[in-house]
Design a protein around this nucleic acid. Structure first.
Lengths: 116, 116
DNA sequence: CTCGGTCGTTACGGTTCCGTATCAAGTAGC
DNA sequence: GCTACTTGATACGGAACCGTAACGACCGAG
């Protein structure tokens, strides 16, 4: 069932979801980390460090560090590209899928709670 | 004009807006800082440090530090409560209003770009 | 084989954030 | 006045992040 979103409600929805992220025991991700995570899970593979850096317009070390952190959280995984061993491919994990899915559920849930 | 949001699109919208925040020169706020900012601007005053800490379920120093940072960015302002001088009231600023408004515009703009 | 170019990682110094604990200022009851 | 309580700010050590710069591993043209 689709949810209608009026301009005045958009910010309220954003606030509710952001707040839910903070209040929950959810891993405390940076905005950048979140952007990386969502890109990996919503855009078709393959995902390379270089590609992600270009997509987010940040430097490569930012991506490397974010992958270190999120890798420790098991939200993403690294994998050498066998075809071109210079590349590192970023892959999804079960834990990451569940985490992203949960965010989606939160958005929809909060959207439904909006005053009509 | 309202925008319809289907479950499968919610995450895509979230990604687009988060990405826009990263790519823009927007002040690099923490998730927590963003939650505080949106709460101050979307919920009716007054806002106290204690109240915000309780609302976000974080400790008081977190709020104090966030207000230090966002205060330096002119996104919020502190003001002593004259009635009870122990309290500090968090108030909105012109710059903060513009920033929050811009986020709202981004959400709506990205929502309209979603595939029908 | 060699050498320029590309890839991701690491090193560095600096800044910011965290949580816990402590603090000064202010209030209210006695 | 004095004490118990509340409020927000601060101190501290530790952790994470940033951007710049340098690094080793790898590819591919010649």
């Amino acid at each position: 069932m689709p949810v209608t979103l009026r301009p005045g409600q958009a910010l309220g929805l954003w606030r509710e979801v952001t707040l839910a992220q903070v209040v929950d025991d959810a891993p405390d991700l940076t905005i950048r980390q979140l952007a990386i995570l969502l890109t990996v899970y919503l855009e078709p593979p393959p995902h390379t460090i270089r590609g992600l850096a270009a997509r987010l317009q940040v430097t490569k070390p930012v991506i490397t560090r974010a992958l270190d952190t999120m890798g420790a959280m098991k939200l993403v995984a690294r994998h050498r590209d066998e075809a071109d061993k210079r590349n590192v491919l970023v892959r999804r994990t079960v834990e990451g899928s569940l985490f992203v899915e949960k965010i989606g559920d939160t958005i929809i849930a909060k959207a439904r709670e909006l005053p009509t």
